[in-house]
Design a protein around this nucleic acid. Sequence first.
DNA 1: CATTTCACCTGGTGGC
DNA 2: TGCCACCAGGTGAAAT
Length: 287
Amino acid sequence: MPELPEVETIARGVDARVRGDRIVEAWFSRHREPFKSAAASQAKGLAGRPILAVHRTGKHIVCELGLAPAEDTPNARSLGQDGRAAAQWIVHLGMTGRLLVTDPEAPVVPHTHARLTLTSGRELRFVDPRRFGRLEFRDLEKREGFAGPGAEPLTIEATEFAALFRGRKLAIKAALLNQTLLAGVGNIYADEGLFHAGIRPRKSAGRLTRAQLEKLRVALAEVLNHAIRLGGSSVSDYVDANGVKGFFQLEHCVYQRTGEPCRRCGSLIRRVVVAGRSTHYCANCQR
DNA sequence: CATTTCACCTGGTGGC
DNA sequence: TGCCACCAGGTGAAAT
């Protein structure tokens, strides 16, 4: 479910409620590897660590963690070297993942795969029916910090954005979904961004003019920021860290509006398959 | 290497 | 009500 605006909304919500808290204990379900690091090593790595901050990178939620009291040295390294985090817990929600902050007595819903109990008494829970999500623990004393390979669509500049697509023959829609180029855009916002930029999804990425690419960059950033302001798109079951739905689905111009009139020109929205994904566009507004 | 296709999962929906 | 086909916001491995 979650693309950049949904992940950003969740990360902000989780940050607001668990920043400064401390992980007492972590529990993981046995359900086959919905994990990137083994459950046992994650549980061991997480226990006792303070949560310094929670933020988003691409479609990943990154929990910045300090040192557990036992390994804390008198050398003032409870925040790690230079006040930076000593470890990270990285959550990718896949299609149906949820990261929720709950009271401990809140019923444990089916497909709950992780429960982190916190000093405050609250719990951080990961729920994921389809199990496409991924959980990873990184000890920064041993490895490098997490940074997705793709550029951030909200801050990328014109020249760099244009360079991403130069010489690429594939459809612009397929290119937008490639997380190693641009991180955070998924099926909804690729379609919406292309609509606002007036570009056909199947147009070759490398054949777009510099002006079209710039229009696309701006359109994407506007759509994503607008969606963040509305708490994301709740297409079926997306909710934020507090279980609250978003409202951007009400503003969709093309996504899942097949056969409905275009909000700008009235012609009917079409659905095709590009890069194996449902793709929606207005043949009149997008050329 | 660039690009496309498919497998991975469960659950909801709509047709019959 | 039941059964079934189809669809779904994501990725990464395998095939081309």
